[in-house]
């Protein structure tokens, strides 16, 4: 074993520039893998967080609502009562956990808070904002029932499941993570090829030793081990760097930068980042062992 380690050390030093390129390529490709994994974790967390809180909004007509849906303009007290009665009826009540009414002034206060500092906050008047029944469903997947029974009812402008907004955001995040994974896949292929080239180069530079080892009857495992270890050491260094990068992204970008700007969003934590590191190292080791093992086996066919 001592001899094997000595060989690995010598070989790593001799092929320093190739080894560094293997480290860098695995570093970058696994960082992409890690970023994609983080993104997926983020999507998952946001989904569970927001889907639970997503409400169905029953927007009532205002003076400025389009005529096609609200011919009478502002909703009347009778119509409001009718909608509320429907929500309380035996048909809908079993699906509803709770609902509450938001009048013009409450909507205005919420709007002012949400758009603080934005120019639009100055121009909006309370009357332009919809009065709304906010409905929390027992099962958020059943928003269909509310919208079917309340759409088109007099005085109702629109029934909107908030999840439809979320789905758009998640769709965009999903595409981003798929893009990251595709880039990572390409990079991993090039990393594998680079590793096998490096190993072949290393085998070529040690062909005398290899010839003698085969001649005196060193076992195949013994001959191949230093090369596989060489690839694995280089890839592990790259994977550790990638793990460091992922933790750094979580620590400084997500928790440091994003968390300040998105205070009400549940962002991935450092613990999640640390969870990804062993996965990256494992992937790096597997990749390197497979690539260098194949390369050396083909080079040393008996």
């Amino acid at each position: 074993m001592r001899v094997v380690l000595r060989e690995v050390g010598q070989s790593l030093r001799r092929n320093a520039s190739m080894v560094i390129s293997v480290i860098l390529v695995t570093f970058i490709s696994l960082t992409f893998v890690g970023a994609a994994a983080l993104l997926q974790l983020q999507i998952g967390q946001m989904k569970t967080y927001w889907y639970d809180r997503a409400q169905v909004a029953v927007y009532l007509c205002t003076d400025v609502s389009p005529e096609t849906v609200c011919p009478q303009g502002e909703v009347s007290a009778d119509e409001k009562a009718a909608v509320e009665a429907k929500l309380n009826s035996a048909v809908l009540a079993p699906y509803i956990e709770k609902f509450y009414f938001e009048n013009h002034d409450q909507a205005y206060a919420k709007f002012q808070e949400q758009f603080k500092g934005n120019a639009v906050a100055k121009y909006v008047k309370p009357g332009q904002l919809n009065e709304t029944f906010w409905v929390n469903l027992k099962d958020p997947n059943q928003s269909q029932i509310i919208s079917e029974s309340l759409s088109g009812v007099a005085g109702v402008e629109e029934v909107r499941d908030q999840r439809s907004y979320l789905d758009q955001i998640f769709g965009i995040l999903n595409v981003a993570s798929i893009a990251a994974i595709s880039v990572a896949g390409l990079m991993l292929v090039s990393a594998a090829l680079l590793i096998s080239t490096t190993i072949r180069l290393s085998a070529f530079s040690r062909r005398r030793e290899l010839g003698i080892m085969r001649l005196v009857g060193a076992s195949n495992f013994y001959i191949q081990l230093p090369f596989i270890l060489e690839g694995v050491v280089a890839a592990t260094l790259g994977a550790l760097l990638a793990g460091g990068a992922v933790v750094g992204i979580v620590q400084f970008f997500v928790q440091g930068y994003l968390a300040q700007r998105m205070p009400f969003t549940n962002l991935v934590s450092l613990g999640d980042g640390l969870l990804i590191v062993p996965l990256l190292v494992g992937a790096g080791i597997l990749l390197a062992a497979a690539a260098s093992g194949l390369a050396i086996r083909r080079y040393l066919r008996i």
Partner: peptide, 23 residues
């Protein structure tokens, strides 16, 4: 079998015209 070849070769000694020493 290719697994046994190394063990077989341990029972043989070989020398060549060009010595094949590690410089």
């Amino acid at each position: 079998s290719s697994r046994r070849i190394p063990h077989f070769r341990r029972k043989l000694g070989v020398v060549f015209q060009d010595f094949r020493l590690l410089p």
